[in-house]
Design a protein around this nucleic acid. Structure first.
Lengths: 150, 150
DNA sequence: CTACATTACATGCATGCGCAAGCAATGCAT
DNA sequence: ATGCATTGCTTGCGCATGCATGTAATGTAG
């Protein structure tokens, strides 16, 4: 029931515990700092939120030419399905993306970049990269992949 | 001229660029996953938001017996001053913390735990630690300290 | 064909956040 | 002592988010 045969002394548990907390604090602070800096810079220089930029980037770099399904985008930018729906709504209002119905499954919706959307992404990308270089710790946080079990 | 003698070929720049982006994606996804799990678990089992818990924890573990200044708390939990002000307001309404004026500087306010606040934190802590153990990548993200220059 | 479950997205609603402005106390000039 | 900047916290406001729900299309019995 308890994972795969975990068996630790109390002191070890405490040590593991505080290491976990320290790691989480590190991730949390790193995220807050970089997130805030990206948000401000993109908003100031390109009138884009970070989530907006990330969606544009995903659409611009996806190999699929038809665009992306909504849920795929939601996963890509770590947003709820509802948040993404509204986000695409905003981007569509601004003329940066288009919604297109899927022919086979008429429930599905493909979002794809407009020319203006691609231009905005290309314009904002240097800012994004520059802020990352300024605010991300240099050392390798490495692709912090998936949780142990999930 | 450019920092401390940076001199890279284009390909190196590109490499650095994509590494930075990959690192950021890793931090971002890790944060979203752990944050979400903590938020849900604490809310469900202890009727506490993550920020609430973090404030309680900081107050419970600070060596200073008088409590903490508001701004110190804001820094500790990566929140804006206004967000923290309201957060303390909620906690005070719930009877988990108290506000006390600072005698020397009557602008300053000390927040300190009530007995109930400490009890709530102690009750919630195992949940917090358990979720961390479940959702945090095991490997050492290491204390992701400060940005290169800042 | 009819019913029910499921999938994919949209929307009402409540909440927490940041920004900018407000207000009181303090520090520092002149 | 008077004026001005600064510090520390609070508050009005708009906004993005998540949850729960609604709606439409699809899949699956029976």
């Amino acid at each position: 029931m308890f994972g795969s045969g975990i068996m630790l002394a109390v002191s070890d548990v405490v040590r593991e515990d505080s290491e976990l907390v320290a790691t989480w604090r590190g991730v949390s602070q790193c995220h807050a700092r970089v997130n805030g800096a990206l948000e401000k810079a993109l908003q100031k220089d390109h009138a884009l939120g970070l989530s907006e930029f990330e969606v544009l980037e995903h659409l611009a770099t996806t190999p699929d030419t038809d665009g992306c399904r909504m849920q795929e985008l939601a996963d890509a930018v770590c947003l709820s399905q509802s948040a993404l729906s509204r986000l695409i709504g905003r981007l569509e209002t601004d003329g940066l993306v288009c919604r297109a119905m899927c022919a086979n499954d008429r429930r599905g919706i493909f979002a794809h970049l407009t020319d203006e959307g691609r231009a905005r992404w290309e314009a904002a990308r240097p800012t994004h990269r520059a802020v990352l270089a300024e605010t991300m710790p240099a050392m390798g946080v490495g692709p912090v992949a998936a949780p142990p079990a999930a």
